[in-house]
Design a protein around this nucleic acid. Structure first.
Lengths: 120, 120
DNA sequence: TTAATATATGAGTAATCACTCATATGTTAT
DNA sequence: ATAACATATGAGTGATTACTCATATATTAA
């Protein structure tokens, strides 16, 4: 080790040769982060179940908590997470807060993915 | 606290009343986990960039490493992750290993999501 | 007012993650 | 054989995460 150490593959790599000038098109950092953020929001079993329930009807926190067999606090935290990303929205009625899907695009992404995965 | 503690909302909740008999349809646990697993795989900026690059062409590890401006080890680890989920596949040619997308469904999920997010 | 209910939230924690570093493996050239 | 290169991988680490617990807030009823 520790000798000539050619700085890059540009001269030696048997690869694509596309490194110079650059591999295009490039996805801007902020877009990559934004896309990943959405996928990550859908990348947890509890949140998947929540979204799946809300595909069919609006539900209050307690009903979600019961349906998911999880503590109310855990559900509230996840709903907060989804709400911050505008995936889910609130409707208050007395003491009760009903949640439903907020974004048609997210809903379509979810449903289309569901269909894809069912045919794999 | 610590007194009557009614066991559930079934009698008192002002909610949907759908708790009994149950909220249907239910997404089976293993399906929820599987769906979340796929979304999670797409839920990281580095992996998003990798998949985006591979949408357009096959690339070797070094070229990906250069394009992503990340260490070769980090890239290899992520490629391993994606390969385990059959999102990406290998093709060996001498010393070089080329990676490309392995699954048309995942590719469609990715592209459709890209389009959705561009129109939000 | 006080009590009960429904939800929200901050702190704490164990598990997971996305890297780095060092090293191992595999391939080609000399 | 040895050396150089290309990739893979195990260990280690700091950051993030998905929960629990206790408590706060909000609404309604008595």
């Amino acid at each position: 080790m520790e000798k000539t150490l050619i700085e890059s593959c540009e001269d030696t790599c048997t690869g694509t040769g596309l490194v110079q000038p650059a591999i295009e098109p490039r996805l801007p950092e902020h877009q990559a982060v934004g896309i990943a953020e959405v996928f990550k929001a859908l990348g947890d079993p509890t949140r998947v179940k929540i979204i799946y329930f809300l595909l069919h009807r609006e539900l209050c926190v307690h009903d979600l908590s019961t349906a998911l067999e999880m503590g109310q606090s855990a559900v509230s935290h996840q709903l907060r997470y989804l709400r911050d990303l505008h995936i889910v929205k609130r409707r208050k009625e007395g003491k009760t807060v009903f949640y439903s899907l907020d974004d048609g695009h997210i809903e379509q992404i979810f449903v289309q993915t569901l269909h894809h995965l069912q045919h794999m």
